[in-house]
Design a protein around this nucleic acid. Structure first.
Length: 523
RNA sequence: UCCCUGAUAGCUCAAUGGUAGAGCGACCGGCUGUUAACCGGUAGGUUCCAGGUUCGAGUCCUGGUCGGGGAGCCA
């Protein structure tokens, strides 16, 4: 008898002798036929467990039938049997485990018992997601988290396939960066220095602490903040002398990456089409259902693309991912539809049907102002030049358009230095705009942020100066504009946000195996 | 970080300042080709932590810790 996965067993012909290996989901006993035991077994290869019907009477009885009756949810077993048409309702095929079967004598080998069924954390009953987060090592044995894990895999594969099919190259951008210029928020320090007794002195690797600590303007923080130390500087009271980072592993300060974009741009400026797909780290004290300290991000970058092409790529991408999930994981998606979000599948199919709505920021402001005039209440003011609040984005994508919206051409003062300056008068905006875009989707909000990059050296330099960024740090980024510069564009897709969008799961901590959030890094 | 809210049985939740309860799960038994089963029974508690008020605190007060929702930041 050959070992088959449950998935494989479901697609094998009747009468196939099989060996199955997995974990018990449920165990039911019946007195019929001299004694029967229904063991539902899952090995995680597909949504449904397979039902094993174990004989307990006469010559057909498996030798350890008494022990089999005591198996509880979570026990690990191997079962020999034969695939048969089910006599019961609820499943079409099942595994008959009959010790007296001529060609496939049945047997149950007990591999691992659950030592105390009363305290088994994922007993066969309804659990809250909050509780299961505390049992992250076992929650993947549940329907929901098994489905999440399989969809997560499918989505990962689809992402690589999408880009590979379009001649993109997958680039491994660094996880550790000693670059101060990634500028996407607070970073985790990477250091081998003795934190309790660091070397001190005026080393060459020292960077003045506190530069730009308080961003000039709140709105500018998003784009202009250089790498800030999340570790409080010891500068407040009795500072002996600054820490000498020249002594540190890299000879200067280093952090975990907050974005692979700048590195990605260098490869796009040689390979034309590239993407990154890797972990990203933000040391921000964000406590929401949409933020993680460690998350995965996909960042394509394309030479010769403008903002419009960028937006179309993002749209193709999202639609491709929806198709992949719907066609490759019908079992799990059906579960999400039935138990997590009613209407999920229709919602996703609706996204496929029409082009995304492209909307200049300036026009979005008008729509929001009209809504205000029409009596709609917003907590935060609406005015050209402000960054849109969650409630504004939600109004646009959930109420006004009821579909994904690509917002474009934002005021330059609320966006990053590397975004391309638009010609004056673009969209009849009352101020300068840059070629930025955000893709907003119902329920999740911002799922993609991207832009056309500034390829003109003089304009880029002016922006760096204007935002008081350390120009020296950007020497290699500037080189791209000095040696064969090219218009290019790209975006970042938050992988976990895509997961939420595709599964209907409402908390980002439930779509990643082991979530890292402030005050939480168990497992 | 801010606002709101919560922490009691393995889980989800009750309990006027006065003997700690239910449902689910677990266990035992009955019934059944069972499958969100059903019927009967049993066990299961340092009420998050540290102080305080009180004759008496799960309950009131102070301070923590952690969870959840929302906001900001962003993906």
């Amino acid at each position: 008898m050959s070992w088959l996965t449950v998935k494989k067993a479901f697609s094998s012909p009747i009468d196939t002798p099989v060996t199955l290996k997995g974990w018990v989901r449920t165990n039911r006993e019946s007195k019929a036929d001299g004694g029967l035991c229904f063991l539902a077994i899952s090995d995680g290869t597909c949504f449904d467990p397979i039902q094993c019907v174990i004989k307990g009477g006469g010559a057909s009885a498996v030798s350890n039938y008494a022990e089999v009756l005591k198996l509880t949810t979570g026990c690990c077993v191997e079962v020999d049997g034969v695939l048969v048409q089910s006599q019961g309702k609820g499943q079409s095929v099942e595994v008959l485990v009959d010790a007296a079967h001529a060609s496939a004598p049945g047997q149950v080998r007990i591999i691992g018992l659950v030592e105390n069924p009363d305290t088994y954390p994922v007993a066969n009953k309804r659990h809250t997601f909050e509780y299961l987060r505390e049992q992250a090592h076992l929650r993947v044995r549940t329907n929901t988290f098994g489905a999440v894990a399989r969809v997560r895999h499918t989505l990962s594969m689809a992402i690589h396939r999408f880009f590979h099919e379009r001649d993109f190259f997958y680039v491994h951008t660094p996880i550790i960066t000693a670059s101060d210029c990634e500028g996407a928020g607070q970073m985790f320090r990477v250091s081998t220095l003795d934190m309790e007794n660091p070397p001190r002195g005026e080393g060459t690797g020292h960077r003045a602490l506190g530069t730009g600590e308080g961003p000039v303007a709140a709105g500018a923080a998003v784009s202009s903040t250089s790498a800030q130390s999340p570790v409080p500087s010891a500068s407040s009271k009795s500072t002996p002398s600054p820490i000498d980072y020249a002594e540190d592993f890299f000879g200067k300060q280093a952090h975990l990456t907050v974005s692979g974009q700048l590195n990605g741009e260098t490869y796009a400026c040689a390979l034309s089409r590239i993407y990154t797909f890797g972990p990203t780290f933000r040391a921000e004290n964000s406590n929401t259902s949409r933020h993680l300290a460690e998350f995965w991000m996909i960042e394509p970058e394309v030479a010769f693309n403008d903002l419009k092409a960028n937006a179309l790529l993002a749209e193709d991408f999202i639609k491709y991912l929806i198709n992949a999930c719907l066609t490759e994981r019908t079992d799990d998606m059906k579960f999400f539809e039935e138990r997590i979000e009613k209407g999920l599948i229709d919602r996703l199919k609706a996204v496929l049907e029409k082009p995304f709505r492209h909307l200049p920021y300036t026009e979005a402001i008008s729509i929001l102002e009209n809504a205000l005039a029409g009596g709609h209440k917003f907590e935060y003011p609406v005015k050209w030049g402000i960054d849109l609040q969650s409630e504004h984005e939600r109004y646009l994508t959930e109420q006004h358009f009821k579909q994904p919206v690509v917002l474009m051409n934002y005021p330059k003062q609320i966006k990053a230095f590397y975004m391309r300056m638009n010609p004056p008068g673009t969209d009849n905006a009352p101020g300068d705009t840059v070629a930025a875009m955000d893709v907003l989707v119902p329920a999740v909000g911002e799922i993609i942020g991207g832009s056309q990059r500034e390829e003109r050296l003089d304009v880029l330099d002016a922006r760096i100066a204007e935002m008081k960024l350390p120009a020296k740090e950007y020497w290699w980024y500037r080189d791209l504009r000095r040696y064969g510069t090219v218009p290019h564009a790209g975006f970042g897709l938050g992988f976990e946000r895509a997961m939420m969008f595709l599964t209907g799961m409402q908390n980002v901590r439930d779509v990643i195996p082991f979530p890292r959030t402030p005050k939480s890094a168990e497992f």
